[in-house]
Amino acid sequence: MTEKTERDHVSGTETTGHEWDGIKELDTPLPRWWLYIFYASIVAAVIYWVLMPAWPMVNGYTHGVLNWSDRRNVAAEVQTLEASRAPMFARLASASTADLARDPELQEFARAAGESAFGDNCQTCHGAGGAGAPGYPVLADDVWLWGGSLDEIEHTIRVGIRSGHPDARMSQMPAFGRDHMLSAAQIGDVTEYVISLSAARDRLHPNAQSAARGAQIYLEQCAVCHSATGAGDRTVGAPSLVDDVWLYGGSREEIRRQVELGRNGVMPTWERRFDDGTIRALAYYVHQMGGGEADQAALAPATSTPVLDQDQGQQSGANVTP
């Protein structure tokens, strides 16, 4: 290189020799701090290759001397988390309804665990927050087919409804239309009568004559399960017909269709899928959605006061005892 480099007289920096319309480009060196960080990055990269999983190979990849694995770490963390929750689940599984009622910590755990399990397993049919869907009962209201106490709800979750479980909750609404048990006119009459029994009469205005004809058919065909007054029977999961809550829809047509088709919903048994603690948590979560009913033994008011008093008692006791 015999070519003499040119220096800019203001900055004292060499030029690259390039020139455009009299403008020359300075060959300004990289800032030193930048250059050092660049070199340091290269060094860090090489160290990383050695320590951590880095290069894809034909079969697998380089594992690195630290043997790091995010997958394994996550699995370990999940295991730690599950282990840390295990005692609470065990406590929940062995707690009686009364125990649960006076233990706010356990309630909070049950609610959280129940909400999580509900979201993963129940929400698809029963809706978020137990909002329900046509054919899938609303769990947040105070209308229960098979009973709304904590024990009853837990039992339903355990055995399911028409689930094939030996102890499953079982009953069958006949398909009066499809199986030609009643004529179309008779079904129309009984539909009018059912509407006249229910709170829906104010909005659907049943035909009085038709309803009167339907009354006789109701007593013969329906009253066995739904009772003469239409109050329903929880032992067989027969819904009350006096309120204005309808599993398969509350319009005249929808009520009629249920008499015709007698749809019977299925809820799976969850006993084999969940441990006792999770089932208890689910039952608690559903129970506290708003419509939960008291058990035979009435729920004691849950306040933190008794628990707190115990703590204080223990503390003062510890202070007194030498």
Partner: peptide
């Protein structure tokens, strides 16, 4: 206020919010 469900219809015809 809970938004799911936005309201619940009760057996006696009343409404409930959570």
């Amino acid at each position: 206020r809970d938004r799911s469900p936005p309201f619940v219809r009760l057996a006696d015809g009343g409404m409930r919010n959570d």
